[in-house]
């Protein structure tokens, strides 16, 4: 069973790489049209220290932006979940804000705080990712069945106790569902800013350098590195979900 679990995806990945290599070889495409997998490793090796340094930059900026989004999103979600008035007031604003494509916000932020690379990047990662968290928490809290509240309220429990013992755990599955979306969004935000900003750092900047110096294997290598980081971040969230909201998973029947 476990061999199958590892072997099937691994073989699929190898097949894709071989097909990719073959495609480039058969078509006789030069590097600047499309790099082949065999070009990637030299590109990685040549810039291995930059990959490590910039990969770390991208990673911590994404995590910092996402952490801000979690704190702010949960807070906003709580306010909207508990107060109908606040929900009516904030919801249209939130939807409006979310409707703005964040790619257009990137240059504005980049100009607003010129040179503040870390802050700009974290800010965009945060702005792009807090929306799903706020919405899911507010919906989770506002749709809590009154009976759940009543079993504790009839014992004279405080609002805080009810939140802590009932509302919060009950909302966790929705929260983690939103966090899976948010982590991908935050990652997109980080890279958008890193690519747009001149003289920045991070994998996005490395990608941009590859473009400027027409080093196509490097650009593809960055894509692979980004995919790897994205997968790691996603599965960290999945792992946390298993720990904190594993009860919501049903056995497949």
């Amino acid at each position: 069973m476990s061999l199958r679990k590892v072997a099937v995806p691994a073989i699929a990945m190898v097949v894709v790489l071989v097909l990719w290599e073959l495609l480039v070889w058969v078509q006789g495409w030069p590097n600047y049209k499309m790099a082949s997998p065999s070009d990637l490793w030299p590109a990685f090796w040549k810039f291995r220290w930059l990959f490590l340094e910039y990969g770390w930059q991208t990673l911590w900026r994404t995590v910092a932006g996402l952490s801000l989004a979690v704190v702010f999103g949960v807070g906003l979600g709580m306010v909207m979940g508990f107060s109908r008035t606040m929900r009516d007031a904030l919801y249209p604003l939130l939807v409006g804000f979310n409707a703005i494509p964040k790619a257009t916000v990137v240059p504005i932020i980049a100009l607003m705080f010129v040179g503040q690379h870390d802050m700009n990047t974290v800010l965009i990662a945060f702005l792009i990712s807090f929306f799903p968290i706020a919405v899911s928490v507010s919906i989770g809290l506002s749709t809590l069945e009154p009976e759940y509240r009543d079993i504790l309220r009839s014992l004279g429990a405080s609002k805080l106790t009810i939140f802590w013992k009932i509302a919060l755990p009950k909302t966790l599955p929705e929260f983690f569902g939103a966090l899976k979306v948010a982590v991908t969004l935050a990652f997109i935000g980080t890279n958008l800013m890193e690519i747009v900003e001149p003289h920045g750092k991070g994998l996005g900047h490395l990608f941009d350098s590859g473009k400027i110096s027409a080093d196509y294997p490097l650009m593809f290598a960055v894509l692979i590195a980004l995919a790897f980081l994205g997968i790691v971040l996603f599965y960290v969230v999945v792992f946390l979900e298993r720990i904190f909201a594993g009860w919501a998973e049903r056995e497949a029947t």
């Binding site: 009976e147 759940y148 009543d150 079993i151 009839s154 009950k170 909201a245 009860w247 919501a248």
Partner: peptide
């Protein structure tokens, strides 16, 4: 000093 039970057992799934 009151205990309550409803039609829905409202057990906490977690």
């Amino acid at each position: 000093t009151v205990g309550m039970a409803f039609q829905n057992p409202v057990l906490l799934e977690w």
